[in-house]
Amino acid sequence: MFVSIGLVFFAVYVILPIFQSFSYSFTRWDGLRDINGVWTGEWVGLQNYRRLLDDPNFYTSLWNNLLWLVLYMLAVPIGLGIALFLNQTVTGIRIYKSLFFFPFVISQVVVGLIFTWAYNPEFGLVGEIWGWFFCEETTNIMGNPTTVCSVDPPNILGNPDVATYGIIAAGLWPQIAYCMILYLTGLNNVSPDQIEAGRLDGAKGWKMLRHVILPQLAPATFLAVVVTVIGALRSFDMIATMTQGGPFGSTNVLAYYMYDQAVGEGVGRYGYGSAIAVVLFAIMLVYISYFLWRMWQDEREAR
Rank of each mutant, 00 (worst) to 15 (best):
N144T: 15
V109Q: 00
V148Y: 00
V227M: 03
G81M: 11
Y257E: 03
S25N: 06
A83I: 07
F236Y: 12
G264K: 03
A75T: 06
Q297C: 07
A163I: 08
N65I: 09
S25K: 06
G171D: 00
V14S: 01
V263F: 07
P145S: 06
L32G: 12
P247R: 06
L285A: 12
L157F: 05
A275Y: 05
D30M: 09
I181A: 10
F26P: 02
S4T: 12
V229I: 14
I167W: 02
I82A: 04
S98L: 08
P174C: 07
L80E: 02
E122H: 14
L285F: 11
L292R: 03
I276W: 00
Y49E: 02
I78D: 06
T91I: 11
N57M: 15
I230V: 13
G127W: 03
S21F: 13
T27R: 03
S61L: 08
I283Y: 00
A275T: 09
M142R: 01
A232V: 12
F236Q: 01
L16G: 09
P160N: 12
R300D: 10
V148L: 05
Q244R: 08
L214W: 13
Q175M: 09
T146R: 07
R300T: 15
T139Q: 03
A275N: 04
A163M: 07
G81F: 08
F26K: 00
G198E: 13
D161A: 15
F22P: 00
I18P: 00
S274F: 09
Y13V: 12
H211E: 12
S289F: 09
R294M: 14
A11S: 13
G171S: 12
F9G: 14
Y256G: 14
A262N: 04
T116S: 05
G112H: 01
W206V: 15
I114H: 01
Y287S: 10
W39A: 10
P145M: 08
G45F: 10
G264H: 03
V148C: 04
R269E: 05
R199F: 07
R50V: 15
R303Q: 07
F26M: 05
Y270W: 10
G171T: 04
D30Y: 06
F26A: 09
G264A: 09
G143I: 11
